[in-house]
Computed example of a mutant assay.
Amino acid sequence: MDLKEIQELIKMVDESGLTEFELKQEDYKIILKKEKLQPMFQPALQPIQSFMPGAAAGKEAVTPEHPSSKTEAPQTINAPIVGTFYLAPSPGEKPFVNAGSKVKKGDTLCIVEAMKLMNEIEAEEDLQILSILVNDGQMVEFGQPLFEINTK
């Protein structure tokens, strides 16, 4: 069983009503258990870093209003699995990307750790990271926006 099949299995169990799933093969055994967690207070998502020259930490960046920007939702890259979000390959190392980074198709954007597996999330096309929407080390849910991007 390869990593993509395991990720699909995790996704299916997460989206189902199952609380436990076990798969035994000749050379491995996979057990998935899902606990019902109590909802935790989470403030509205705010960009951690924004791509605005001169924007200081703690200061809100002001962006010019465009009529079309009110109707269009920003493009995002969302978490493909539930897990822990990491911006760097290991603690103390340089992050894969920052707000404003331009990346090429196939470049690693972050890691989402699930069940002790480090899943590298790669860019599916050339793009620019506008903002990072979650903190390093934060738990993320399936489908949760991780990055706001521009593909133009």
Rank of each mutant, 00 (worst) to 15 (best):
I77E: 11
F21R: 02
E120M: 14
L18Q: 03
E22F: 08
I111V: 07
L117N: 02
M139T: 12
I30M: 06
F85G: 10
F41I: 00
V140H: 04
A88D: 09
P80Q: 03
A99Q: 10
P145T: 04
V112I: 13
N119H: 09
G106A: 09
P53T: 03
T71M: 13
I10G: 01
L117Q: 09
V140R: 01
P95W: 03
P67S: 12
Q7W: 06
N98V: 02
L109C: 07
I48H: 13
K24E: 13
V62W: 07
V140Y: 07
A61P: 02
K152Y: 05
L87I: 08
E120Q: 14
T19E: 15
L32W: 00
N150G: 14
P89N: 02
T84A: 00
K116T: 07
E141G: 11
K102C: 13
L32S: 08
A44H: 12
D27N: 15
P95A: 11
F85I: 09
L133Q: 08
G17N: 10
T151K: 09
T71Q: 14
S131K: 05
N98P: 12
T84E: 04
K34G: 12
S131G: 14
I10T: 06
E15W: 05
D2I: 10
A99D: 07
I77T: 00
K11F: 00
K33N: 06
Q75D: 12
L146Q: 03
F51D: 06
Y86E: 14
V140S: 05
Q138T: 06
K116E: 13
Q7C: 00
S68G: 08
D136M: 08
V112T: 06
P43H: 15
L32H: 07
I121Q: 01
F51Y: 09
E113T: 10
G100M: 01
V140E: 12
K34A: 06
K29M: 05
D136I: 01
T19M: 12
Y86G: 04
E113S: 08
E22G: 04
K29Q: 15
C110V: 02
L37P: 03
K24H: 12
F142P: 05
A123W: 07
L37T: 05
I81V: 11
E120D: 11
G137W: 04
P67W: 09
